[in-house]
Simulated assay, not measured.
Amino acid sequence: MMYVTGFLLKCLLLVGVCMGTEWILDDAQGAANSDLISRALWAEELSLSLLPSYSLAPEPMPDPLQCIPLLHEFANNSAALSNCLVNMARPVRLCQHCYKENSQLKATMSKIGNPVQNGTVSCSTVLLRSDRVQVIVTLSEFFDKLWSDSKCANCLQTNGTEISKNTSDFMNSFDSLIQCFNNTMREPPIPTQQGNYSRVCQSCNESYRQLNSLYNALEHTNALCIDLEDVMNGTRKLWSKTFNCTLPCTDTVPVIAVSAFILFLPVVFYLSSFLHSEQKKRKLILPNRFKSAANLANIQDKRN
């Protein structure tokens, strides 16, 4: 605020000096030539002082010719990544097939931010901050967000240049299951069964269980990406809806035993309550000899 106020004061002072110069020219043009020159020089110095500081000492800029190759490199890499992402959208395999293009695009962005050859300034000022839209920055942020939302880093190694071993093992298990589906479907159907889907359930049950267990383990360790999630979702739909197969639960016997025990608890409770009440009644009943003695005493009292 103080800077703006000072700037306005300087502008008003400059306008006043210029107006005073015009008055001198109109009123006493010949007599005040020397004073006019000094005022004009002072006004020129004042106007130069009003200019922003960067105009007097401009920020060093790189040679645009050195930045044009980086612009073309970013265009080629972004086009290659876009083409790969679209082609691998169905079925989703973008993390496994587009990580090279993504790494190349990140490397190009690093080059733009680093100083150019034989210089101390980078091309970021020319390519990234030279316009309001900032096309390169917007595109780079879009690719980063898509890559992050897909959780592709979970399916790659730490450096992001190779597929992780867990991902490779999962995809190999998936390929084995699909091969089992294809081989079983080629076999002749069983006459007593509807199609040959029951044969698929029997022949590929072990492969499906192995794939499902591996997926649960990766899910527990947060090692899943969009590729593996899409693979497992499609496989489960194929197994349950298309082939009408079910995965038997290994905890069936313990669940049945616990359920039966819980249902039997009320019976045990009421039975134990009934037996406990009967025992109390028996304790209150007098023995037979006490009953006979009591009867004799009552008879004697009545006779007397």
Rank of each mutant, 00 (worst) to 15 (best):
G6H: 12
F7K: 06
L8T: 07
K10E: 09
C11W: 13
L14D: 04
L14P: 00
V15G: 08
T21C: 02
Q29S: 13
G30V: 10
A32D: 00
D35Q: 05
D35I: 08
S38T: 10
A40R: 06
W42Y: 13
E45C: 03
S49T: 12
P52L: 02
L56H: 13
A57W: 15
P60E: 14
P60Q: 14
L65C: 03
Q66Y: 09
I68C: 05
P69L: 01
L70W: 07
E73L: 02
S78P: 00
A80Y: 11
V86T: 14
N87S: 15
A89E: 09
A89V: 02
C98R: 10
K100P: 03
T108Y: 10
M109Y: 06
I112L: 06
C123M: 07
S124Q: 04
T125R: 07
T125P: 01
L128N: 05
R129W: 10
I136P: 00
V137I: 08
V137Q: 05
S140A: 10
E141D: 10
W147G: 00
S148M: 03
S150G: 01
K151T: 00
N154L: 01
Q157H: 04
T158L: 13
N172C: 11
S176H: 12
Q179A: 14
C180L: 04
M185D: 05
I190H: 03
G195I: 01
Y197N: 05
R199M: 11
V200E: 00
C201H: 01
C204W: 11
N216I: 09
E219G: 00
E219D: 01
N233T: 15
T235K: 03
K237G: 03
L238Q: 12
T242G: 08
T242D: 09
C245K: 02
T246N: 09
L247A: 01
C249M: 09
T250R: 11
P254L: 07
V258A: 12
S259F: 13
F269W: 15
Y270W: 14
S272D: 12
S273N: 14
R282G: 04
K283G: 02
K283H: 06
I285T: 15
L286I: 12
N288K: 10
A294P: 01
N295K: 13
L296K: 04
L296A: 05
A297V: 10
D301I: 12
K302E: 13
R303V: 08
